[in-house]
Amino acid sequence: MKNNIFYPVLLLTFLSCTKDQGVPGPAGLQGPAGATGKGSATDTASIFGKLDLVDEFSVFQNDGSHVVITLSSGSQQQTQTTDATGHYIFPGITTGTYDLSFAKPGYGTMKIFGLSHFGGGTLGTQAGYVLLEQIPVKTAPDTFILVSNSPTTAGFDLRLDTSSLTYQQFSENMIVFISKNKTVGPTDYMTTMANQFIIANPDGIGGYTINFNKSNVPTPTTPVTPGDTLYAVAYTYNPWVHDRNNPQSNGFGGYGSSSYYIDPATGKYVYPNLSKPSNIVKFVY
């Protein structure tokens, strides 16, 4: 008798606890967008890269942080800052062509032009490796003089700032610009002399000589004839740097276009970490 009473009560309790499923209502309003993520190399909308810092004595620095990278395309512009390892990333970048500049106080500003980025690719876009170099002060030119001049060659002597008495500048980390104009310099030159200096007095205070072959001057756009006056000015810079793992050694390595770029407006090379200029030297072709 007890069983006959229990089951109907249980069934009644179950039926009273169930509800019919109604038709779903309309979706609510969409909430605000979340914060932009940091992105990664596998994020197809990211532009990322790596740089290193080098001091004026051509030595790699362990801390690559606080370099400001500006990414621009037309009127659009945004910035990021490197971490201690020199890495940076721009997340959420749409398809387009971009320019980048790399700046830190006391260092030359490097640039990359025309980086193509496709937001729908399989990976993010990696920008070229950059070497950001400190502007030389203790190794800057002190005096620059003409020591000989013949119909075929001109000889120069360059001495550096004597504030550094213990460091000998690598002979290929100097450059001379030559022009027909008194405004000779990085933006006004017809030819350059680099990688040609000979250490004359390896005493840590300068003493570098170079012989310039005059046949290197004439070009179709800048004809020069015997008797013309030419102007020369010297700088130091750091396209060659010490071995990263053994900075005290005499070994140097060149990093090419990682430390300079071509200005698309002029077609000329730009060397961002040039020192202050030497005095200008006048000589006859």
Rank of each mutant, 00 (worst) to 15 (best):
I5H: 06
F6D: 14
F14M: 13
S16M: 15
A27H: 09
G31W: 10
A33E: 14
G39N: 09
T44G: 10
A45L: 15
A45W: 02
S46N: 14
D52L: 03
V54M: 08
Q61G: 02
N62I: 06
D63T: 08
S65F: 02
S75T: 14
D83T: 09
G86K: 10
I89D: 06
F90H: 05
P91M: 12
G92M: 03
T97M: 05
G106D: 13
K111V: 09
L115D: 04
G124P: 12
A127H: 06
V130R: 14
V130G: 02
S148Q: 12
N149Y: 03
N149T: 05
A154D: 12
S163K: 12
Q168N: 14
F170I: 00
M174K: 11
K180N: 08
N181Q: 10
T187E: 15
D188P: 09
M193V: 15
G206R: 04
G206H: 04
V217I: 15
P218N: 13
T219H: 06
T221Y: 11
T221R: 11
P223L: 07
P226R: 04
T236W: 05
Y237L: 06
W240E: 05
N245L: 14
Q248L: 10
S249F: 03
S257D: 09
I262W: 02
D263H: 07
Y269A: 15
V270F: 02
Y271V: 05
P272I: 12
N273A: 14
I280M: 08
V281C: 05
